[in-house]
């Protein structure tokens, strides 16, 4: 009887470990669901939206300009930030505001990305703390799941920043 109970407990323990490991692999290498909070990505993602972020393109180094990514905050690794990739390594980024007379530019260093929120007035991003290392990116947001009326993929780019950055780098 005791041996039977022990066997059952051990079996349950084994199944727990097995499914825990499968869950870890799924969240780590396929994707995860994220509840976004904060105003920095309005109007694309508003407070309390639920999005699905996939991890494959980060592991395969296929993050492109214009993708919305979830990254670890460079100043607090426990906190995640959700921003749009404006520039990859080697890109020239305009760092001054559009109304400034003198434009200032900076280059994104090797292995780094330039992230900005879509809500340029209310977002703490690379304009404050500079480019962040690529390895801090956790995943690419590919679907918005909640609220239902805005269900869909995240393909459109509402800001002109990326195109402008590209034109800047082309013209020089």
């Amino acid at each position: 009887m005791f041996r039977h109970m022990l066997g059952k407990t051990l079996g349950l323990f084994g199944y727990t470990i097995q499914y825990g490991c499968i869950a870890h692999c799924a969240f780590e290498y396929i994707g995860e669901f994220v509840v976004c909070s904060g105003p920095s990505m309005e109007p694309t993602i508003v407070n309390h939206d639920v999005v699905f972020s996939e991890r494959m393109s980060r592991h395969l180094f296929k993050i492109e300009k214009g993708d919305i990514v979830i990254a670890k905050s460079p100043f607090d690794p426990q906190m995640n930030i959700c921003k749009r990739v404006i520039g990859l390594e080697g890109d020239k980024i305009c760092t001054s505001s559009p109304s400034d007379l003198f434009k200032t530019h900076t280059y994104v260093p090797m292995g780094h990305v330039w992230l900005e929120g879509d809500n340029l007035r209310n977002s703490t991003d690379s304009r404050n703390y500079g480019p962040i290392p690529y390895a801090l990116i956790r995943g690419r947001v590919c679907w918005k799941l909640w609220p239902l009326h805005s269900f869909g993929t995240m393909s459109e780019t509402p800001m002109k920043r990326i195109i402008k950055a590209q034109r800047d780098s082309d013209s020089d």
Partner: peptide, 11 residues
């Protein structure tokens, strides 16, 4: 069983 367990242990 083996692949997820190994990956999780390594991670």
């Amino acid at each position: 069983v083996a692949v997820p367990v190994t990956v999780t242990i390594l991670d």
